[in-house]
Amino acid sequence: MSKTRQDLTWQELEIGATIITPGNSDEYKSGDWRSIRPVVDKKKCIKCGTCYIFCPDAAIYETEDGFFEADMFYCKGCGICAQECPTQAIEMVEEEE
């Protein structure tokens, strides 16, 4: 199955548009909504994980070296991580730039 469902024809929908694959909301690219994105300054980051806890979409994950990054497939660019970061290590950057 494709990552997004934007190419389904009307005949391919289940009866009543029923969703028969539980948990398939993780295929939904909520990252499409984003107009600004978080950029982490690793020099300021203290690896506290506050951004990971506060992210309302659970889009932030811990990398192997202990830093935290946002998955751009899901990140809506809400900026809560930047707001909550105790060391101001996260900056929200316009998508166009």
Binding site: T9, L13, A17
Partner: peptide
């Protein structure tokens, strides 16, 4: 992106 398809269905 899927509403119109759902309505035709």
């Amino acid at each position: 992106y899927v509403f119109s398809e759902a309505k035709v269905a």
